[in-house]
Amino acid sequence: MTFLVMAALVIGSTSVVFAADKVDDTVKSTLVTTAEGLTDAIVQLKDEEIENYMSSGDDFTTSAMQSWQTSKDELGAKKDSNGETTVTFKDDQYTVTVPLKFEKAEANFVYVFDSQGTPTSMSVDVQYGMGKTLQRAGLNTLMGIGTVFVMLILLSLLISLFRFIPNPEAKKAAEAKAAKAAKEAEAAAIAQTAPAQAEENLADDGELVAVIAAAIAAAEGTTTDGFVVRSIRKVKRNRR
């Protein structure tokens, strides 16, 4: 009921035009009273009441309830104010900041009013201490590094599975390489057997070799010791 009364008070004050270039004392006093009253009403709401406002309230009420619901467990119960409420005016909007102290942390309730003094949004800015900030930064860092390592492991596993995927091109290349190796081995075997066959032919035609060698020696006027017949091949001549 308190929250509804304060909301009605704010909506009823829209007849006052807050369009000055700077915030005068009257406007500031009105905005501070409205923001602080809304804050006191919001922090006292129970979970059931928050759910009811979120389901049946207007846009401002819904956004305010959502912002407070996500922050209330981190803050705990309200203890006291944490300084003076400030009002700034920029881009035809008034921003009112209400600083408060809670059991677990400090927070700023930031309200935005239009030029007519109607609230348009509210957010809760939790002020974490140095220890809490470092703790959150460390957790975020560990989470980021952990995520990177997990992704690298998954990527390695995915790459290792590529060997089970059939690759026609690789198979063709392997077959071509094997065929080439077989041809080279066959050519090497033929090259190794050719001298042996020539020597065998010379051994079989020993008498013919001796005759030919003697004929060559007689024609050259020397002996057969000055040369060696390695092979004998038949020359094909065209008959006339």
Rank of each mutant, 00 (worst) to 15 (best):
M1R: 09
M1C: 04
L4D: 07
M6H: 14
V10C: 15
G12A: 11
S13C: 09
T14P: 09
V17M: 09
F18I: 07
K22W: 12
V23S: 02
T26S: 10
T26G: 02
V27S: 00
V32W: 02
V32L: 02
T33A: 10
E36K: 03
L38N: 00
T39N: 01
T39P: 04
A41I: 14
A41Y: 08
E48A: 11
N52G: 04
Y53I: 14
Y53D: 00
M54Y: 03
G57I: 07
D58V: 13
Q69T: 06
G76H: 07
N82Q: 14
G83D: 05
E84I: 14
T85Q: 00
F89M: 15
D91P: 02
D92H: 07
T95A: 12
T95L: 07
L100M: 12
F102N: 00
E103L: 13
A107P: 02
N108M: 03
F109K: 01
Y111C: 09
D114E: 01
D114W: 03
S115C: 06
Q116S: 10
T120K: 14
T120V: 15
M122N: 01
M122I: 11
V124M: 01
V126L: 12
G129E: 05
G129R: 05
G131I: 13
K132W: 04
L134T: 14
R136E: 11
A137C: 03
A137D: 14
N140D: 08
L142E: 05
L142Q: 09
G144V: 06
I145N: 04
I145C: 05
I145R: 01
I145M: 01
G146R: 07
T147A: 10
T147N: 06
V148A: 14
F149C: 13
V150I: 08
V150P: 03
M151N: 04
I153W: 01
I153M: 05
I159N: 03
I159A: 09
F162Y: 08
F162T: 13
F164R: 07
F164A: 06
N167S: 07
P168L: 08
K171C: 13
K172D: 06
A174F: 05
A174E: 04
A176G: 03
A178K: 11
A178C: 08
A178M: 04
K180M: 05
E186Y: 12
A189R: 13
A189W: 04
A189G: 06
A191E: 09
Q192C: 00
A194N: 12
A194I: 12
P195R: 11
A196T: 15
E199Y: 08
N201C: 03
D204P: 01
D204K: 12
D204G: 06
D205P: 10
L208R: 13
V209L: 02
V211W: 04
V211P: 01
I212R: 01
A213C: 09
A214Y: 04
I216G: 05
A217L: 04
A219S: 10
A219M: 11
G221S: 00
T222E: 14
T222D: 10
T223D: 11
D225H: 03
F227K: 04
F227Y: 00
F227M: 03
V228E: 10
V228P: 05
R230H: 15
R233M: 06
K234H: 11
K234G: 12
V235P: 02
N238D: 10
R240E: 13
